[in-house]
Computed example of a mutant assay.
Amino acid sequence: MVSEELWSIGELAGRAGVTVKTVRYYSDRGLLPEAERSSGGHRRYGAGALERLLLIRSLRGLDLPLPEVERVLEGDEALEEVVSGQLRELGSRLAALRWREASLRLLQDCPPGERAERLRLIGAVSVPPDTAAMARFWRRILPVRLPARVVSAVLDSVVPRLPEEPSPGQVLDFARLHALVSDPRVQLPGSRPAPPLPDGEYLPAVLYEGLAEAYALASAELAAGRALREGAALDCFVAAYAHARGTVDSPGFRSGLLALLARSDGPVITRYWKLATGLFAPGEPVLGALHHRLSVALHVQVEAGAG
């Protein structure tokens, strides 16, 4: 039987391409198995230690913290967990770098007289930013009786996802949007947008679920190049309000709906959608734009009927 070849700490370091100090550090942490000690008390390592040392070097080369490396050495399942966690962390760091780069370009390219204002705006946003303030803004606006599943669906549709490669313009729009929804003056009862229908006189879940269907139809009709003035999207849009009120669609109802829509679309919501639209991905439906297009289509239809 041939005995395993053993190496001194210096020989192991040379085979692995690391320093003796590195080998000693990992040995002292219990990460490298010693085969035996020489008569003089010097460490001796076998092939298993070399394999383990090369694995540690590879993982450290990927910038994994040593505690994470120690987890990996416990088994292959831990490796998958650690890699997934590191990818998430790296994604967050890259997002922060991309946002920071776009923010710096925004400051670099703007007129000197606007830099102080823009610096104040972007300085109020975390890096990488999040959309929690937008979600809170809409939760304050939505009816309290709205089911949680409907609230979740609405938030998914009205809160833009952050662009992966933000432009300076998108950074500015996001910063202004964040300032809008975080403004304490907007949170005062008198400054909030009016409800879509008189409070207590409609079924919120029926309205919002019906509007979601109308917006989906409108998006499809516009993508197909069809006008909204005559079509399923506009009928569904009106029906959502009618059903929520417990009434039926009629020319008179459509005429009265125009006045309700005019009161519900206040300056805050208009400003919100103006800033948020450019943050949605190309081709992604923007509910504010669809709502406006349907309202305009209804106005044109009612005016044509009156004429």
Score class of each variant (00 low, 15 high):
residue 225 G to Y: 13
residue 157 S to Y: 04
residue 240 A to L: 08
residue 224 A to T: 08
residue 157 S to E: 12
residue 11 E to Q: 14
residue 247 T to H: 13
residue 259 A to W: 13
residue 56 I to P: 02
residue 269 I to R: 10
residue 84 S to K: 13
residue 259 A to D: 14
residue 141 I to C: 00
residue 108 Q to L: 12
residue 109 D to G: 04
residue 81 E to F: 03
residue 208 Y to Q: 05
residue 164 E to S: 01
residue 238 V to L: 06
residue 142 L to M: 01
residue 230 E to S: 15
residue 41 G to D: 07
residue 209 E to T: 08
residue 7 W to F: 11
residue 11 E to S: 07
residue 51 E to S: 15
residue 16 A to Y: 05
residue 154 V to K: 01
residue 133 A to E: 04
residue 150 V to C: 08
residue 198 P to K: 04
residue 33 P to G: 07
residue 160 P to M: 08
residue 156 D to I: 00
residue 86 Q to W: 15
residue 174 F to L: 11
residue 48 G to H: 03
residue 227 A to H: 13
residue 66 L to C: 15
residue 145 R to L: 08
residue 184 P to W: 02
residue 241 Y to N: 05
residue 252 G to P: 02
residue 175 A to N: 06
residue 227 A to C: 13
residue 251 P to W: 14
residue 81 E to T: 13
residue 114 E to T: 03
residue 258 L to K: 13
residue 233 A to H: 09
residue 69 V to E: 13
residue 231 G to R: 11
residue 26 Y to Q: 06
residue 83 V to A: 15
residue 306 A to V: 11
residue 115 R to M: 03
residue 50 L to I: 08
residue 22 T to W: 06
residue 87 L to Y: 14
residue 215 Y to R: 13
residue 125 V to A: 06
residue 183 D to S: 15
residue 275 L to R: 09
residue 54 L to C: 12
residue 11 E to T: 12
residue 172 L to E: 07
residue 300 V to K: 07
residue 303 E to M: 12
residue 137 F to I: 09
residue 214 A to H: 06
residue 99 W to S: 02
residue 140 R to L: 13
residue 248 V to Y: 11
residue 187 Q to T: 09
residue 44 R to Q: 10
residue 248 V to D: 09
residue 189 P to C: 09
residue 159 V to L: 03
residue 270 T to S: 05
residue 119 L to T: 09
residue 144 V to W: 07
residue 234 L to R: 09
residue 303 E to L: 15
residue 121 L to V: 07
residue 263 R to K: 00
residue 5 E to N: 10
residue 3 S to C: 09
residue 188 L to S: 10
residue 244 A to D: 09
residue 167 S to R: 08
residue 29 R to W: 05
residue 120 R to W: 08
residue 43 R to M: 14
residue 120 R to F: 03
residue 239 A to T: 15
residue 221 E to W: 05
residue 128 P to C: 03
residue 62 L to E: 13
residue 12 L to P: 02
residue 178 H to E: 06
residue 146 L to Y: 05
residue 51 E to N: 05
residue 35 A to E: 14
residue 96 A to L: 10
residue 69 V to T: 14
residue 54 L to R: 14
residue 183 D to P: 02
residue 181 V to P: 05
residue 75 G to E: 14
residue 169 G to I: 00
residue 111 P to Y: 02
residue 17 G to H: 11
residue 208 Y to K: 00
residue 95 A to M: 06
residue 55 L to M: 14
residue 25 Y to G: 02
residue 106 L to C: 05
residue 175 A to P: 02
residue 248 V to L: 14
residue 184 P to F: 12
residue 202 Y to G: 01
residue 1 M to C: 03
residue 72 V to P: 01
residue 227 A to S: 15
residue 26 Y to E: 07
residue 219 S to Q: 10
residue 61 G to I: 02
residue 26 Y to C: 03
residue 148 A to K: 04
residue 151 V to D: 03
residue 10 G to Y: 04
residue 124 A to D: 05
residue 110 C to F: 01
residue 70 E to N: 09
residue 289 A to M: 10
residue 215 Y to H: 12
residue 45 Y to I: 06
residue 153 A to Q: 10
residue 111 P to K: 06
residue 293 R to W: 00
residue 154 V to A: 11
residue 6 L to Y: 00
residue 229 R to A: 08
residue 48 G to Q: 10
residue 160 P to T: 04
residue 165 E to R: 11
residue 261 L to E: 04
residue 167 S to I: 00
residue 178 H to I: 03
residue 98 R to G: 00
residue 138 W to M: 08
residue 117 E to C: 02
residue 188 L to A: 12
residue 191 S to N: 14
